[in-house]
């Protein structure tokens, strides 16, 4: 897997657009999924995917082949998502007082989504409850939990992506898990 990516990166760096398109195909769904869970909005998720690949393309020549390509692209995408959440928070903090839901932050004020009815049907009620619980997590726990459980990254990988010590990631997973346990308790 990583060899393919390194080869593709090299080709793309030489201006091979087809190679870059292959990189996009390999990762766009993963990044989209990450963005969608982080931001709960399709448009924003797609914008994040687009921005991520644009940044990847622009900094291909600075990619260190000793690094894992996936770690690199996840880092770019996660940072873009966190930036967007921060900006939202800044915009919506004025309304935060009105927000009696969960009291965690202003995020739940954002109109949650434009999920299509078909996709809505495929998600069972329980899953929806879990997704809602994840959505209500504060950003710093949210990113860690999504990378851990929805992207299957190891604690070490998350630490590489976020550039934080593993111990910090562990603490966040623990708190995040505990938070979700309390949220999901009635369902357990």
């Amino acid at each position: 897997m990583d060899q393919i990516e390194n080869r593709l990166t090299k080709l793309a760096l030489n201006g091979d657009q087809q190679a870059f398109a292959e990189i996009v195909e390999l990762y766009k769904d993963k990044i989209y999924h990450l963005g969608y869970r982080m931001l709960s909005n399709r448009h924003e998720a797609e914008d994040v995917v687009q921005e991520t690949f644009l940044r990847v393309f622009k900094s291909l020549d600075r990619f260190d082949p000793n690094q894992k390509f996936s770690t690199w692209i996840y880092r770019i995408a996660t940072n873009l998502c966190i930036d967007r959440l921060r900006k939202r928070k800044a915009t919506y903090s004025l309304d935060a007082d009105m927000n009696d839901q969960e009291g965690l932050d202003g995020y739940s004020l954002i109109p949650s989504d434009n999920r299509t009815p078909e996709s809505e049907l495929m998600i069972s009620e329980t899953k929806q409850i879990i997704y809602d619980a994840i959505e209500s997590l504060p950003a710093k726990y949210k990113s860690v939990m999504i990378l851990r459980y929805l992207q299957d990254l190891s604690l070490q990988e998350i630490s590489d992506v976020l550039g934080m010590p593993v111990t910090t990631i562990k603490t966040r997973v623990h708190r995040g898990r505990d938070f979700l346990r309390k949220k999901l308790e009635p369902k357990l």
């Binding site: 998720a45 797609e46 687009q50 690949f53 644009l54 899953k127 898990r177 979700l180």
Partner: peptide, 30 residues
């Protein structure tokens, strides 16, 4: 906690997928 952990792991991993023309749009932007 164990059940929470299991529920989280049981979530589907690649749904929903990005729209079809996204790759094309990305390739147009670069």
């Amino acid at each position: 906690l164990e059940q929470t952990d299991m529920m989280l792991y049981s979530l589907p991993h690649n749904i929903p997928s990005a729209s079809y023309e996204l790759t094309e749009r990305i390739m147009n932007t670069i």
